[in-house]
């Protein structure tokens, strides 16, 4: 009959369930990130537990087949968020390359203030799926960059677009946004 479940144990179970769901809301942070990395929810971001997952200084490009039959355009976009007082621009707005070809581009950064400023750059890709085919050998993103007052600096990015890039993609955009952070 109805009375055979102990009230106390039921209440405890329900309360535990509520706490578990609170835990789950925090667990959604890593779950969301892995879902993004798997390309399910949003692929414009990178794996943050390992931001250099696609940055590998030892990429052996001699083995990578350069697909000479195909041209792709890679565009470079630079933004600064909110009140970030840096001038930030790519030296080249775009390059035409073959998939598999190692490419080097430089972003110019200027701190326009009289104070030392710290920034972090966040990368993003368009179209979103490009993240899976964009391998960086050298990158300045996700590391705190400290700029002295009025310092000018060139920040390089070295990358390869892998030849398995889907055939209908012929333009890729690499975007960096610099955020000001506390030092």
């Amino acid at each position: 009959m109805a009375m055979n479940v102990s009230v106390k144990s039921l209440v405890i179970k329900l309360a535990l369930f509520a706490f578990a769901m609170l835990g789950f809301s925090y667990a959604m942070v890593p779950i969301y990130k892995s879902a993004c990395d798997a390309g399910w929810l949003d692929a414009t971001r990178v794996d943050l537990s390992n931001p250099y997952a696609n940055v590998n200084r030892n990429v052996d490009t001699s083995n990578t087949q350069v697909d000479k039959s195909r041209w792709i355009t890679v565009e470079f976009v630079a933004s600064t968020n909110e009140k970030m007082p840096w001038n930030f621009e790519a030296q080249q707005k775009s390059v035409r390359i073959h998939p598999g070809e190692m490419t080097n581009v430089v972003y110019d950064v200027v701190n326009t203030t009289d104070r030392e400023t710290v920034g972090v750059a966040v990368p993003s890709y368009g179209p979103a799926l490009a993240v899976q085919y964009f391998k960086k050998v050298e990158c300045f993103c996700f590391t705190k960059q400290v700029m002295a007052p009025h310092e000018h600096r060139g920040m390089p990015v070295v990358f390869v677009v892998t030849p398995d890039l889907p055939k209908d993609v012929n333009t890729i955009t690499l975007s960096y946004t610099f955020f000001e952070v506390k030092s």
């Binding site: 329900l14 369930f17 609170l22 959604m28």
Partner: peptide, 22 residues
Amino acid sequence: LVAVMPVLAGAVTMLLTDRHFD
């Protein structure tokens, strides 16, 4: 309710710590 109110509580707590605790 028991399943999702804690999720909302978690989300707004994250907002709160983003606002004040870096």
